[in-house]
Design a protein around this nucleic acid. Structure first.
Lengths: 419, 419
DNA sequence: AGGGGTTAGGAAAGGGGGTTTACGAAGTCC
DNA sequence: GGACTTCGTAAACCCCCTTTCCTAACCCCT
C-alpha cells in the first residue's frame, strides 16, 4: 500500500495554485488564498516557487481598498511549451501549448490501416513533434515535456504499452522507443485519463473532490476523479467502463462479451442504434463514424424524427449507465467528454439528464451535476500535455532560489480595477 | 474540496499500526516497522501513544539474533470495550467487544413489523446496549464508544438518518435521540460501510490500497476502499451498487427501476431465481429468506441439481456485476461479505470466479483476487464497533504524556520463539 | 508635505509529521 | 569480563503549513 507523505501535500497544493492561476489569470495572492483555502504565507511561497520556475510572472497591481495594492500574477505563457500527443487508431495528433494552455501549433499524421508496428507509430509521433516545435519556433530548451496518450492498458511509470487492442500490441516499451528520437521529458498514459486530467485542471471538474469524466468517442470509458486526484487502481486500468454489462446477453461486443456499454453508446454503438431503427436512413454513413454522428447532430437540429429517436435511445442507454456511476461513486459532477458528446451536444445532454433521473437514486442524484465538457479543443491532447505539466511541477526544485541581492522592483505595467 | 493535512497522515499511521498489532498480536516494533513501511522511530512513537491509551500492553520479549531482545506488545483486550449496533429491518443486534475485537456479550431484540417509529427503535437499541454492558460487567468508563449501523442514507457527521427505505424515515436525528439514553460516544453509518470497514481492519482487505467489499444480504451494496480508506462520495452515499442496472428492462425492483443487481443476487433476488427455475421446489420457503438460503446451501452440499442451478444462475448475475466493478475500479481484492455470501460459501465463490473471468477484462482481472470474507462473526456489528474504535483513535491525545519519573521495567512475562 | 490609517506580503516563529543519526540498554559469545 | 550484536529512545533534521510580527506601499486628511 502506498503511503502518503507530506510532500504529496505540497505537490497537490502546487497543482491547485497553478490551476487557479491558469483559470483566473491575472490574479492576486489574496484571491488565490481565498480560492484554495490555503494561508497567505503558503500561497506566497508557492507563488514564489512558480515565479522562480518562470511559469508565472508579476504583471502589475490591483487597487486594494485603501491600502497597499495587491500584486498580480499571471501565467507566463511564453515561459515554456508543453506538447500533447494523441495516438489514435487512425491518426496521430500532436499539439504544442504555451503555459496558458493555448494551442500554438498542431500536426496531424494519418496512419493507414496497415501501419501498426510500434516503430511506424513512433516515427509518426517523432515527425509530428518535430513539426510542432519548428512551427511554433520555440527553442528545445523551453519544451517542458511531452505527454503521450496511447489507447489501452498503460504502465505509466515504465512507459510500456501493456496492451493496445486496436493494434494487438503487447508490452511495447513505447516510451523507450520514443526517447530515442525525442529529447524532451516524456510522460505517458491513456486517453481516458488524459481527458479526466484535462477536465480536472481546466474543465468542469476543477475543484471537485469527486468527479466522473465520461468519455464518449469511438471507445467509451470513465475517468474517475476521487478525492481530488485521478483514481488509477492497482494496475493503472481503472475506469474501464466501456465493457461494463448494461444489458445481460445483449449485443455482442468486440471484447467477446455481450451487452457492454460500449456497444450502445460509443460511436459504433450509436451507429448500430441507428441501423436498428432505420437501416436505410440517409443519416447513416456505414464506413464513417464522424460523418454519421455529424449527420445525426444536424438531423436533431432539423427535428428529424429518426435522429431524435436515435439520440433518445442512446441517451436511454447512456443514462442507465451514468446512473450506475452516480449511485456507485456519488460524485459531485459528471462530465460528458470526447467528440461524440461534443458533436451531439445539448440535445444529448438533455435526454441523458432525464434518463439518469429515471434510473439513479434520489439522494446521490440530487448531489450530482451532469454537464458537457467546456473544453473547446481536443481534450486528449490537452490532457496529455497536462501530464507533462504535472511532471514539470513534480520535479520542481524544492527550495526557493536565493533571492537576488537586489530584487527588481516590479514596474507598474498595468492596473486592473477591483472586482 | 477537502484538503489533506499532515495530521491525516498521523491518523492513518495510527490506524495502520493498531490494525497490524490486532492482526498479529503479540508483535515487536521491528515487525511493525517492516509491515507498515514506517521507520522504527515513528513506530516507536505510535506504539508509545497506544501504550499510553492503554489500548496495548507490553507482554514480554522475543529473542533476537544475538542482541537485545525485542519487546513485544499485544492488544490490551481489557483496556476498553467497543459496542457495535446493527439496526436491521426486523431486529436490532448489539455486540460488545474487547479491544481484541472478541465478542464479550450480545443482545438481540426483535422488532415487529409495526415497530418502525424512531423512538421505538431507539428504545430497543438503548435496552440492548444496557444489556451487553451489564452482561459483560464492564464499567461504563471503559466503553470507548458505540458504533451504530442503520440502513439507508446516513449523514455520519450529524448522525441523521436521511432516508431509511424500510421504514420510510426521512431526516431522523437518530444519533441525537440515542444520545439522550446512551452516555457513550456515538458514531453512525450504514451497514455497507460497516462491512467495508470491518474488512479493511480485520478481514481480507487489510493492507489493500484498493478493495471492493461486496455485500450480499437482504440488500446488496459495495463498500469501496480506495487508496487505503473508505470512499464516501460527496454526500456519503457512495457504494449503492444494488441499484445498478444489470439487465436493462429486467426484473422490477422495489426502487422503481428494472433490472437492478439487487433483484438478482440479494436474498430476495435469489428466491426469485429459484422460483423461476422451480416454483414448487422444496427448497423455497416463501416467507423466510434465511431458511431458503440455508436450504439452498444444504442442497448444493447434497448435489441437488436445482440448488446447483440456482447458485450457478445467481453467480452468473453476480459475476457480471462484479466484473463491472473489477473493470471500473481495478481493485486488488474483491471480498464477498454478509450472510448470503457466508451461507452459500465456497460453491458460490467458485461459480462467481468463473463468471467474473468470463466477463472482466484480462488485465484488471489478473490483478484482482476474489475471496469470501474471513470474518467469522456478524460483520456489521464488528464494523460498527470499528467506527467507535476509529473515533477513539482520532480523538487520541496528540502528545505523549510526560513519562513517569521512573519507568516500570517490564517483567519478562512470556517469551515467543523468533519466527 | 507630513502624519495616520489600511492593506499587502515577507520573514520568523511555532506546531505537526516522518526520518536519520547517535547512543544507552540489554542481551550473546568467547 | 570484554567484544559484539541488536533494540529502542532521544535528539537533530527536513518538510509542510499556519500564525504572528513587521515592513512596504498606498490612501486620505490636515
Amino acid at each position: 500500500m502506498k503511503r502518503g507523505t507530506s510532500r504529496d501535500i505540497r505537490t497537490a497544493n502546487r497543482y491547485e495554485v497553478l490551476r487557479q492561476i491558469i483559470a483566473a489569470s491575472p490574479t492576486s495572492r489574496q484571491e488565490l488564498a481565498a480560492a484554495t483555502g490555503l494561508s497567505l504565507a503558503t500561497v506566497a511561497t508557492l507563488v514564489g516557487e512558480l515565479l522562480d520556475l518562470r511559469m508565472i510572472t508579476e504583471v502589475g497591481f490591483e487597487d486594494s481598498a485603501g491600502g497597499r495594492p495587491r500584486g498580480l500574477v499571471a501565467v507566463n505563457a511564453s515561459g515554456g511549451a508543453l506538447i500533447g500527443v494523441d495516438i489514435a487508431e487512425t491518426y496521430v495528433r500532436v499539439e504544442l501549448f504555451d503555459l496558458g494552455l493555448n494551442v500554438l501549433a498542431r500536426a496531424d499524421e494519418d496512419m493507414r490501416p496497415g501501419e501498426s508496428r510500434p516503430e511506424q507509430v513512433v516515427g509518426h509521433v517523432a515527425a509530428a513533434v518535430g513539426s510542432v516545435v519548428a512551427q511554433a519556433g520555440v527553442e528545445g530548451a523551453r519544451v517542458l515535456g511531452v505527454g503521450v496518450s496511447v489507447p489501452g492498458q498503460v504502465d505509466r511509470d515504465t512507459g510500456v504499452s501493456e496492451y493496445a487492442p486496436n493494434w494487438d500490441w503487447h508490452d511495447v516499451p513505447l516510451l523507450d522507443l520514443l526517447a530515442e528520437q525525442i529529447a524532451y521529458p516524456l510522460y505517458m498514459d491513456n486517453p481516458l485519463r488524459a481527458c479526466a486530467v484535462a477536465e480536472l485542471w481546466f474543465g468542469a471538474a476543477r475543484g471537485s473532490g469527486d468527479a466522473v469524466v465520461v468519455n464518449l468517442g469511438t471507445g467509451v470509458g470513465a475517468g474517475l476523479v476521487l478525492g481530488g486526484g485521478l483514481h488509477r487502481g492497482v494496475s493503472n486500468s481503472a475506469g474501464e467502463w466501456g465493457h461494463t454489462t448494461l444489458v445481460l446477453d445483449g449485443r455482442l461486443c468486440h471484447c467477446g462479451n455481450h451487452g457492454c456499454v460500449e456497444t450502445y453508446v460509443g460511436a459504433p454503438g450509436i451507429m448500430v442504434n441507428l441501423r436498428e431503427l432505420a437501416a436505410d436512413s440517409a443519416l447513416l454513413h456505414p464506413e464513417d463514424q464522424t460523418a454519421t454522428i455529424d449527420a445525426l447532430a444536424r438531423g436533431v437540429g432539423a427535428h428529424d424524427p429518426v435522429a431524435l429517436k436515435v439520440v433518445r435511445d442512446t441517451a436511454r442507454y447512456l443514462g442507465a449507465g451514468i446512473a450506475d456511476l452516480v449511485n456507485l461513486f456519488n460524485p459531485e459532477i459528471v462530465v460528458l467528454s470526447s467528440w461524440v458528446a461534443a458533436t451531439l451536444g445539448e440535445p444529448l445532454l438533455h435526454e441523458v439528464r432525464e434518463a439518469v433521473a429515471r434510473h439513479a437514486l434520489r439522494r446521490p442524484l440530487a448531489a450530482t451535476r451532469i454537464v458537457l465538457s467546456p473544453i473547446p479543443t481536443d481534450p486528449v491532447c490537452l490532457g496529455a500535455a497536462t501530464f507533462a505539466l504535472e511532471g514539470a511541477l513534480q520535479s520542481a526544485p524544492q527550495k526557493r532560489t536565493q533571492p537576488a541581492a537586489k530584487r527588481i522592483t516590479p514596474v507598474r505595467s498595468r492596473t486592473v480595477p477591483p472586482s
